[in-house]
Simulated assay, not measured.
Amino acid sequence: MLARGIKTILFLIISNTFMTFAWYGHLRFKDFQWAKNLPLIMVILLSWGMAFFEYLFQVPANRAGFEEEGGPFSLLQLKVIQEALTITIFMIFTTLFFKTEKIAWNHMVGFGLIMLAVFVVFKKW
């Protein structure tokens, strides 16, 4: 069960990394000569191509992690894990690739509340 939980989280990390690059990476295309003047449809197709790899990890992660498939997590727990990983990866991505974006105190408070949501969802009341 522990192995399935670890596999789920690792696959969700990989999946969310691809997702973040698909959703926001194209905003950095202007920095590359080959991509500066791409028409929007090409940007969309490139993003879809990246999102394909997201799904190659997202679907197996959810199957491995879902309790009805033998995994350790409920559907709600899977979703909260995914959201917490998404915001974590997004904050790292933003810090590394968008140097002009500043993470302020209110962003950190919001991030903390998302992490609190993980605690609340997993707590056995």
Rank of each mutant, 00 (worst) to 15 (best):
Met1Cys: 08
Leu2Thr: 03
Ala3Tyr: 13
Arg4Gln: 09
Gly5Pro: 04
Gly5Lys: 08
Ile6Ala: 11
Ile6Leu: 15
Ile6Glu: 02
Lys7His: 05
Leu10Glu: 04
Leu10Trp: 09
Leu12Val: 00
Ile13Gly: 01
Ile13Asn: 02
Asn16His: 12
Asn16Val: 03
Phe18Lys: 00
Phe18Glu: 01
Phe21Ser: 03
Trp23Val: 10
Tyr24Val: 04
Gly25Trp: 14
His26Cys: 06
Leu27Ala: 05
Leu27Gln: 06
Arg28Ser: 12
Ala35Met: 15
Ala35Phe: 15
Asn37Trp: 14
Leu38Trp: 13
Leu38Pro: 03
Pro39Met: 05
Ile41Gln: 10
Ile44Pro: 00
Leu45Ala: 10
Ser47Gly: 14
Trp48Ala: 09
Trp48Thr: 02
Gly49Gln: 05
Glu54Ser: 05
Leu56Trp: 06
Pro60Ala: 06
Ala61Trp: 12
Glu69Asn: 15
Gly70Ile: 13
Gly70Thr: 09
Gly70Tyr: 09
Pro72Val: 02
Phe73Arg: 05
Phe73Pro: 05
Ser74Arg: 13
Ser74Cys: 07
Ser74Glu: 02
Leu75Tyr: 13
Leu75Ser: 09
Gln77Asp: 07
Leu78Trp: 06
Ile81Thr: 03
Gln82Pro: 02
Gln82Thr: 11
Ala84Gly: 04
Leu85Ile: 15
Thr86Cys: 09
Thr86Pro: 00
Ile87Asn: 01
Thr88His: 08
Thr88Arg: 08
Met91Thr: 03
Met91Lys: 02
Ile92Thr: 06
Thr94Ser: 13
Thr95Ser: 11
Phe98Glu: 01
Lys99Gly: 00
Glu101Tyr: 15
Lys102Glu: 11
Ile103Tyr: 10
Trp105Ala: 11
Asn106Val: 10
Asn106Phe: 15
Met108Ile: 14
Val109Tyr: 09
Val109Gln: 03
Leu113Glu: 02
Ile114Lys: 12
Ile114Tyr: 09
Met115Asn: 05
Ala117Asp: 06
Phe119Ser: 00
Val121Ile: 15
Val121Cys: 06
Lys123Thr: 08
Lys123Arg: 13
Lys124Ala: 08
